[in-house]
Each structure stands twice: as structure tokens, then as C-alpha cells.
Amino acid sequence: MVKLLVCDSVTKKFGGIVALDKVSLEVSKGELLGLIGPNGSGKTTLVNVISGVITPDEGRIVFEGKDITRLKPHRRVALGISRIFQGMRVYPYLPVYYNVSLSARSVYKDARLARAKTTWALTITRLLAEAGELPINLTPYKLRMVELARALVTGPKLVLLDEPFAGLSPSEIDEVIEIVKKLNENGLAFIIVEHKLRYLMKLVNRVVVLNEGKKIFEGKPDEAVSNEEVARVYLGVL
């Protein structure tokens, strides 16, 4: 498979704490990769490093053959890397439409194209009826959809989802999974960080397990379940 993203020996330290210790991983085009590990294992730090929110101390990030290690986050979005944050992060005083359209307008010079893409993203996430609403009037599920629409509107090739199921009911999680699967069928790659392993393991093709900043496992979901070290790290959660 064609490599979309390559993280090569990425290290990030915060003072004396090593958040990521020579982590390497690859994501192929159209792949669904799960990124799991206990709290403080470095999952979100890795997502931040890939999206450019923080710069690694060592190592390289390569996207479609281009070294993007020092590239600003907005430039990475233009290249095709989008993300949603842990927790619901939206612009609180902007209507849903602008929450989504601003990202489109930043990437597409043509205003008409940006509008069309915004309408498409709002349709996919079933938010058209709420386009004029302020985020404060939305349910957690709809807020998650706003984040997803904002990530999709820029036409990404890789989407980083940081705990997309947090705060959602089982039926809402199923709806998110349905949307992710549909987008993945069209060739969109995902890295999904999640604690709700029951849902994640059914969704992804491959998982990477982090513990204390180190990669301890990489393979198929069912292999992860039977892996002793992974089981030890999760203390029987699996």
C-alpha cells in the first residue's frame, strides 16, 4: 500500500518527562489506524506532533513523501491533514456555518468552492438544519459533528480523531462509526485515538499501542487483544 504518513523516531520531551520516545509509525492511504494506550501514554502528544500543534525534539514526520516536521499547522491542513481535538472544541460565539466555513475559506481561494464544500460537509454530518445555531445550543453529539465537518471541509487525506466517542451515547457512537466508515470507503485515512476499545476494535484495521511514550505493540486488533504486554498495560481492560 502507498504510504501516506511516516513518523520516524519521533521524540518529544516536556521538561524532564519524555512524552514520546522514538515513536515510529506509518499510515497508508485509506487506512483506519487505532492509537490506544493508558492515560499519559503519549497518544494526544503524537496527534499534536502530526498536526503540527507541537514540534518534536527529534525525528521526522513525512507526509506524501514531503518532510513536514517544521511545517505550521495551517500549512499541514492545506496539504491534507485535519484533526479534531480531545474534548469538544469549537468557536463558541460563531454559528455552526462559520465554525465550518472558515476552515474551507482558509484552504480554498475560490469563495464559491469554499461555500460548496461547506454545504457538503454540513450535509455529510447532518448539520444543515443547525447551520445558523450557536454551539451553546447544540448537544454533545452535534458538537462532535461540527468538529468532524470542520475537519472534512478542507478536503483532507488523513483525519486525526482524538477521542471522538467521548461523551456520546452508544447509538450516537454508532452514527459516528457509520460516517467514518463511509468516508473511509471513499479513500480517506483516519488515525483514531480512543479509550472505548469495544467500538474502536470493530472499526480499525490496525492498532498501535503506546505506553509511557513508547510504542509497545503494532498489529491487527485481534492480535492486540491477545498480546500479553498490552493486556498488562490495560490491567485487564481488554
Partner: peptide
């Protein structure tokens, strides 16, 4: 304008704006 709303996005959450494609 769209630019004005980008200015507002910077005011409301600069990190989110930057990570969503806005050249802050």
C-alpha cells in the same frame, strides 16, 4: 467578511484556528 470572521476565530480559540487551517 470571511476575513473578519477569521479574526473572530483567532479571538475565540487561536490554537483551534491555527489547527483548522487559518493562518493566524
Amino acid at each position: 467578511s470571511d476575513f473578519g470572521f477569521m479574526m473572530r476565530s483567532v479571538g475565540q480559540d487561536e490554537l483551534l484556528a491555527e489547527a483548522s487551517g487559518v493562518n493566524t
